[in-house]
Design a protein around this nucleic acid. Structure first.
Lengths: 317, 317
DNA sequence: TCTTGATATTAGCAATTCATCTGCTAGGAT
DNA sequence: ATCCTAGCAGATGAATTGCTAATATCAAGA
């Protein structure tokens, strides 16, 4: 049972002519005639009275036409809506990122991408790390941006960039005048920590342990923005990724002290579902991110990114 | 675009399994898989996420499923209703008859037919002759029963039976005692005539003219029942087909006098649209009528009627 | 009856569809 | 980690289907 057959029948019913209906459907009169006969045979009824000119619908045919027409129209509407929705989806990149990837950074990438791909739309969700993994796993996001990415069967990890961890403190803090600081010097400081459930907290704890230091945890928060605010207000200190502090350092609200004698980095990674081929648009946006973060790392699928029209995608900020 | 494809997709969406959906649709898993792929290609979207087990619909696929399911269900409902309506139509005989064919006669035929064809339904409309021709011409009736059938390109005429015209008068009328009557004796009688527009009126006028008689037309009516009533109440006379008078003669209300020395008959005929092949049921009912009316006239299409299970159709009443 | 415009029919060809078989993948168990 | 199993996709050959072109048939009007 072909939908086209129904359309042909509806057209015949409207035009009262097989030939015209055939033309409307880009087929020969013969094909239309056969189609109608087949339809009637399938339904085991006579829909059209062919013994008069112009042909006429039987009462049954009339009834069938009225209902059928609606259904056919509705279906073609649905088809069109799905098609356009599909094009929309294809042109949209869904990214899931942890809070602290930094709105400032991502905005720049998005702006740059929109210049290169004017028809494209980028949507970034800033979420709790667990939610990021979820959205990647269930396909709601094309890819995710997380810190300390953990490999798994379910997803593939592409290293993106390493962020230097630095000590943040209020401008009025006694340490603010220092050029750098050794981990050991943090002992006794009022420390604002990440939530215990977060990987970064465990990594920092391990780092401090390795340097024989224990800090006095004043409070625990699950995102960078809250920690920054707490550092300011409690006049505490915190170890945070350097890029997330830039705005506050520029405005003078906070001071960022590099660690001396050692180094702690927060690796960021792109995660994406295995065997899940990304759309062309998503692929291009990922390439933009990667070339900005680490232009030399290989692409996991071996495909070449479409180069921007002027190679700007490879320019470091 | 096949309706079956949509059904397969809907089944896949319900079962979350291609194999099961394939079984439901009596096809192999391979065919179902190809069908789905084709559907997705046609719509240019991804409906199903095949990278997880059990498979899952994409958001787009979910949306398509919800709308599609309704449409498919509605269509199958429509299909079923049309099919059953078609069977109904096929089993129903639509007959258009002039008023005076006689309800008594037709009832007998219908009763007998219902015994032979228990599933069949017969519907008889008693109409003005012009309406009978119309209903046959536009296909609303399978065939028509008329008097003095006029041949035409539009319809075919099959002689059915001739009805003897007799003089009707009230039992109290002076002529009622006669055994028969000559046309000339009608001169001066209060005559109840058919409407001038009717063929039978013209035929009767011609008949009387040929016998050199003129009658005094008391009133004109367009159907036999009214004429009979008028004959009774006005104590007039009328020339009417003998079968239409039987009931009144039996009850003693009217007397029927055969014409002597001459004869006038009203031929009845079956009319049906040329090239309009009747359904099997209509054909059988027509055969019943014809064998009862004139068992020796040939059938116009050369087809043999299905004989009744005991040949009763050929028995004269 | 004849013409005209339109539909049905037929045969042959091209495209599609389907089933079998094989290879691959995801998920779960050891 | 590595194996096993169920389920899906892809290739190939067989069969069906759908289409076109040519021809026959038909209804309506002159």
């Amino acid at each position: 049972m072909q939908l086209e057959s129904l359309k042909v029948f509806c057209d015949v019913a409207r035009c009262r002519s097989v030939s015209q209906a055939a033309q409307l459907n880009r087929m020969t009169q013969s094909a239309a005639s056969q189609t109608l006969r087949q339809l009637e045979k399938h339904l085991n009824v006579q829909l059209i009275d062919r013994s008069v000119r112009p042909l006429q619908l039987t009462p049954l045919g009339q009834h069938f036409y009225e209902r059928c027409r609606e259904l056919v129209e509705q279906f073609y509407e649905l088809e069109a809506s799905i098609r356009s929705a599909g094009a929309e989806v294809e042109a949209t990149v869904e990214v899931a990122a942890i809070y602290s990837v930094g709105l400032g950074d991502m905005d720049k990438y998005v702006e740059r991408f929109k210049v290169e791909q004017p028809h494209a739309r980028v949507h970034i969700d800033y979420l709790h790390p667990d939610r990021v993994y979820e959205k990647v796993a269930d396909g709601t996001a094309d890819f995710g941006l997380v810190s300390f990415p953990k490999p798994s069967r379910k997803w593939e990890v592409i290293p993106w960039r390493d962020e230097e961890m630095v000590l943040a403190c209020a401008a009025s803090h006694p340490l603010a005048a220092r050029q750098s600081i050794r981990p050991a010097e943090l002992a006794g400081e009022k420390y604002v920590a990440f939530d215990k459930a977060l990987t970064i907290r465990r990594q920092i704890d391990k780092f401090l342990r390795e340097h024989g230091t224990t800090v006095e945890v004043a409070c625990e928060l699950d995102n960078v923005e809250s920690i920054k605010k707490a550092v300011e207000e409690l006049s505490g200190v915190a170890l945070l990724p350097e890029p997330t502090l830039r705005r506050e350092v520029r405005s003078g609200a906070l001071v960022a002290l590099p660690l001396s004698g050692t180094r702690l980095v927060r690796p960021l990674g792109i995660i994406l579902r295995r065997q899940h081929k990304l759309g062309a648009t998503a692929l291009r946006f990922m390439d933009l991110l990667r070339s900005a973060g680490d232009p030399h790392s290989p692409r996991p699928d071996g495909r070449q990114a479409q180069p921007g029209r002027n190679g700007a995608a490879h320019a470091e900020r």
